[in-house]
């Protein structure tokens, strides 16, 4: 199992989470290798299919990092994302895949440390879960 190098896709909001990413960078806090970051204008525009596709194509985990509920630039973007993440959790569960492989995180613009921490947290979680393929 030590050979297992998880591949994780992270969607992050161009407003709050990306500022956090900048802060994180300025603090020289990197995200672990294996976490691929995709910036989106608003997490509310991430469709269910966007969250499923990475799993289809080899990802072992997916997460969405967006605004806190009270500071979303588009009012409810992160709440929409959260509902879609919940839907994907249900789909994964029905396929006997751990729902913990997908998660929503909410953080404000200044939380550079948290931004890096989330990435490590997900990496650790997926590492423990192991690869998806049962074969």
């Amino acid at each position: 199992m030590s050979e297992f190098k998880p591949r994780i896709l992270a969607f992050y909001c161009a407003n709050c989470a990306s500022s956090a990413a900048n802060v994180s960078e300025s603090m020289s806090l990197g995200v672990p290798a294996g976490v691929k970051m995709v910036q989106v204008p608003c997490t509310g525009r991430i469709e269910t299919l966007h969250l499923l596709k990475p799993f289809e194509e080899g990802a072992d985990g997916v997460y969405v990092a967006g605004c806190q509920e009270d500071s979303c630039r588009y009012m409810s973007g992160i709440l929409k994302a959260e509902k879609r993440v919940a839907q994907v959790k249900r789909i994964l569960e029905e396929l006997d895949i751990e729902p913990g492989r997908i998660e929503t995180f909410k953080l404000s613009a200044g939380k550079g440390f948290r931004f890096a921490e989330i990435a490590s947290e997900m990496m650790k979680r997926v590492q423990e879960l192991g690869p998806i393929s049962g074969g």
Binding site: T48, L49, L52, K53, F55, E56, G58, I91, L92, L95, D96, I97, I132, S133, G134, G135
Partner: peptide
Amino acid sequence: VGVLASALRIWGRKTG
């Protein structure tokens, strides 16, 4: 259709 097809492919991956 896209979502269900994707879910089926993920199931394919999961079950080899």
